[in-house]
Amino acid sequence: MSDSKDKGPDTRAIVRDGLWDNNVVLGQMLGMCPVMAVTSSATNGLGMGLATMVVLIVSNAMIASIRNWVSDTVRIPVFIALIAGLVTLVDICLNAWLHELYKVLGIYIALIVVNCAVLGRAEAFASRNTVAASALDGTAMGLGFTLALVVMGGIREILGAGTLFANAHILLGAHFAFLEMRVLPEAASTLFMILPPGGFLTLGLLIAARRRIQDGLEARAAASASTSAVLAN
């Protein structure tokens, strides 16, 4: 086997890819079911994001460690079985230690199994890279997913209820109580934002904002490259 297959990609590129360039929600637009369903509050988004990140990290690392022993003809069923097992463990752990969060997230925990981002990273990255690089990729993708859910949930919660990270001490544990705050008076809240239409509106605006920022960064990079070429000549 060639050494190029075992050589991990650049660390900065992996982190940037997961957090920004190929952000699961805002870039690839994957996992839309939990994104729309659980982001009525930042607390729910944080819980769902962290659960998904755990699955991404562990599944990526495990798949990278067995990639040389799994035949190409059966790799997809093997990946799915492994991911399903991990999701079952996460589901059981949440039910045991974070039962209130488990009740809020409900079936969407089990649906991590069919989240295209998880299987996609297993096939596109973990099956071709080292364990360390794959674990980092899972961490970056999971963080990007979590940040998107928290930002989206935070916007909807602030505008819809006037609070931020409400009930964090109940859903995530007493040590998360410091996150809870009231941002707007209750009278200033807009119920529309925590209803499904508010979720679609918030997601659309976030995707548009990311694309606008990305276009600006690319234009600046192109201008900088052009200036450097002129100076070099």
Rank of each mutant, 00 (worst) to 15 (best):
S2I: 06
K5C: 12
G8C: 04
G8S: 07
D10K: 11
R12E: 15
R16H: 09
G18Q: 07
L19Y: 06
W20K: 11
D21I: 15
N22A: 15
V24R: 05
Q28H: 11
G31K: 08
G31R: 01
P34H: 07
M36H: 06
T39H: 01
S40K: 12
S41W: 04
S41K: 05
A42S: 04
A42D: 08
G45W: 01
G45E: 11
L46F: 12
G47C: 09
M48V: 08
M48S: 13
G49Y: 02
L50N: 04
A51H: 01
A51P: 10
A51V: 10
A51I: 06
T52K: 04
M53V: 01
L56G: 01
I57V: 08
V58N: 06
V58S: 01
S59T: 13
N60G: 05
I63Q: 03
I63N: 09
I63V: 11
I66K: 02
W69G: 15
V78D: 02
V78F: 11
L82R: 02
I83L: 06
G85V: 04
G85K: 08
L86T: 02
V87T: 03
V90P: 11
D91G: 10
I92L: 14
A96H: 07
A96V: 10
W97D: 04
L98I: 05
Y102I: 03
Y102A: 12
V104Y: 00
I107D: 08
I107F: 09
I109N: 05
I109K: 07
A110S: 14
A110R: 11
L111R: 02
I112R: 00
I112V: 11
I112W: 06
V113K: 01
N115H: 09
A117Q: 04
L119N: 02
G120K: 01
G120R: 01
R121G: 08
A124R: 09
A124E: 14
A126P: 05
S127K: 05
N129Y: 11
A132S: 10
A132F: 13
A133P: 08
A133K: 03
S134W: 14
A135T: 02
L136A: 09
G142A: 07
G142V: 00
G144Y: 09
T146C: 09
V151F: 14
G154P: 03
I155T: 05
T163S: 10
T163C: 06
A166W: 03
N167I: 01
A168G: 00
A168E: 00
L171W: 12
L172G: 00
H175C: 11
F178K: 00
L184W: 04
P185R: 12
P185I: 15
A187T: 12
A188G: 08
F192D: 08
M193C: 08
M193D: 10
M193I: 15
I194E: 08
P196F: 06
T202Y: 03
L203G: 09
G204L: 09
A209Y: 12
R211W: 13
Q214A: 15
Q214C: 04
Q214D: 13
D215Q: 14
L217C: 09
L217Y: 07
E218H: 13
E218L: 14
A219S: 10
A221E: 15
A221T: 10
A222S: 11
S224I: 06
A225T: 13
T227Y: 15
A229K: 07
L231Y: 15
L231G: 14
